[in-house]
Design a protein around this nucleic acid. Structure first.
Lengths: 95, 95
DNA sequence: TAGATATTTAGACAAATTTCTAAATATTAT
DNA sequence: ATAATATTTAGAAATTTGTCTAAATATCTA
C-alpha cells in the first residue's frame, strides 16, 4: 500500500495514469504531453512501475507503457472498508 | 484530490483512519496509540482535516476526531474510472 | 485566580521528493 | 562501424515532509 499511495501522491503521475486509461503510450510520447524533461517523466514512470500501476514493454527502440488495473481493485477494496460499518457503530460520543 | 492523496500518503495517517473507523477518539487517545509525540500526531490530524477525511469537535478540554466518509466516496469514484474501458464505454460503477 | 490537563502552534532539522543537466545504454538505420 | 533516436541512470540543487522540543492556547476544577 505504501508504494501505491506514494505513486498516487503526485499530479503528474495521476495525469499519466489518466492518459494511459485512453491508450498505451511510449515514454517519449508521454513526456511530450508535459512541460517537463524526459528524465523527470522517466522517474515518474519508474515510481508508477514500482507501485505496479503500470507495465512497460519494449518494442524496438520504444518502450510502451500501459495501465495495470488489477492494482486499482486492491486500492478500491482498501477504501470500501471505510464505507461499511465495522461493528454497526453508533458508539459515537454524542452531546 | 491533491490534499486527499497527500493525506493518505503516510502510514501513520492511514492507521489513524483505520482506528477512527472503529470509534471516535480524542487527539490524546489517538496519540497514545503511537510511538510519537502529541505534536506530531496533531500535525497528522491537521493534514487529515485539511483533506476533509476527518472532522473534529471540541467537548470541553477534549477534541474528538471522527471519520468523514463522504470523501471516501469521491476517491473511490476517481479510482473506478480506471476499471471501465473508456473506448468501449462500459459502465461498471454499480457494484 | 491558580494549577492541572488537553491540544495546538512555532521553529528547527534531517530525510525524502521533484526536478534539472550530463552521461550512459539500447536499438535502428546508413 | 558510425550516427541518430529513444530511454534511463547518476548526481546535484531546491523544496517538501515528518518529527522533535519548547512555548502558547483552551478548558476544567479547587
Amino acid at each position: 500500500m505504501n508504494l501505491l499511495f506514494k505513486a498516487l501522491n503526485d499530479q503528474t503521475r495521476r495525469d499519466i495514469l489518466e492518459m494511459l486509461r485512453e491508450q498505451d503510450m511510449t515514454a517519449g510520447d508521454i513526456a511530450d504531453k508535459f512541460d517537463m524533461t524526459k528524465p523527470s517523466i522517466s522517474h515518474h514512470l519508474s515510481l508508477l512501475k514500482q507501485a505496479n500501476l503500470v507495465v512497460d514493454i519494449r518494442k524496438g527502440q520504444f518502450i510502451y507503457y500501459s495501465l495495470n488495473t488489477t492494482v486499482i481493485d486492491d486500492i478500491v477494496k482498501w477504501f470500501l472498508k471505510f464505507n461499511s460499518n465495522p461493528t454497526e457503530n453508533e458508539n459515537n460520543q454524542d452531546s
